[in-house]
Design a protein around this nucleic acid. Structure first.
Lengths: 167, 167
DNA sequence: TGGTTTGTTCGGATTGAGCCGAACAAACAG
DNA sequence: CTGTTTGTTCGGCTCAATCCGAACAAACCA
């Protein structure tokens, strides 16, 4: 029966999202809730998400908050200013990856670079520590530039930039 | 006193490595042990690492194993085939990042892509699930190609590829 | 107004990761 | 051969994350 096939396929993809969520530093429940919203044809409320996922109301409440903060889903304050809140998935996966990129990698690279630079200023000229710190700084400067540029391109542009390089 | 300054600078960088380790899915102890080895002028044995880091012998043993597996440090079986093992840091940070890239991101992208493709084959032609799965697949195909190409370039090459694109 | 639905917040149970110390195994030194 | 050094493995402790249920607050409905 084709309905079954659809359901199975959908479940497979959602399970895959659960796993991906862990890689991105989120919980499995976050992956599942995002997945359910990704396949939903309309925005869902918290009770509906409770039905679909089997998680407790409190869990759904907390997870939707973090997912909204990170930009994976969007809060649609219900029409009429009512209390009922609905959530919609951000379906442009590339946007999500860019966000994660910026919020995690870029921040990480920048703070690391700042620390390295301060350390490099502090270390005496002839110290044994000077060279390794300098090497570290140079790599991270490359990295900062790469991450900066990469975050500005779309997936297709990025792909093309890499494919056409080295003529 | 310049020795102090060196020590402080070194400690700052190592603390930064502790933090970075967490981002890469490793423990803080892994970051510190790598850091100590990164600054060491010679390869260090487990007892020496215990002295330098303050961690228990068992912790150092376990952490060095995982760090070796991931390629962050190298096991130097002692001269003469003795039992004593020494560890040396991989100091080409870009190599490390490439490895992490390949072992985590690339693997993750590929397994996800495989799951998506299987799901896409299974889902009926006219099902509501078809389009979102197809979108997902297309993004991940771009992503796979990007990650593949990026992992083959050096930091400088990658930087240049992005900088010269679309001038 | 009183009852129902929705969403948030709190405390607690469960689980897993990280680290430790002790026991063990293997190599070496005397 | 005996004692020491080195490295691994095992069980246990602690802490943090995840999730749950209950209590609460806010909006809606009759």
């Amino acid at each position: 029966m084709s309905d079954d096939d659809s359901a199975v396929a959908r479940e497979r993809v959602i399970e895959s999202m659960e796993q991906s969520a862990e890689v991105y530093g989120l919980s499995r429940s976050a992956g599942r809730i995002y997945g359910v919203l990704y396949f939903a044809s309309d925005p869902l409320s918290i009770p509906e998400l409770v039905d679909e996922t089997g998680y407790a109301k409190s869990t759904v409440s907390n997870v939707t908050r973090t997912l909204s903060r990170v930009g994976l889903i969007h809060r649609r304050s219900s029409t009429g200013g009512g209390r009922r809140v609905r959530f919609e998935a951000e379906r442009e996966v590339w946007f999500i990856l860019q966000d994660v990129f910026q919020q995690y990698i870029q921040r990480e690279v920048q703070t690391t670079l700042r620390t390295i630079r301060r350390a490099e200023e502090q270390v005496p000229e002839d110290a044994r520590e000077q060279e390794p710190i300098q090497n570290l700084r140079e790599t991270y400067e490359d990295l900062e530039e790469i991450v900066q540029l990469a975050s500005e391109y779309s997936a297709a542009e990025l792909r093309e930039a890499l494919e056409t390089y080295e003529q």
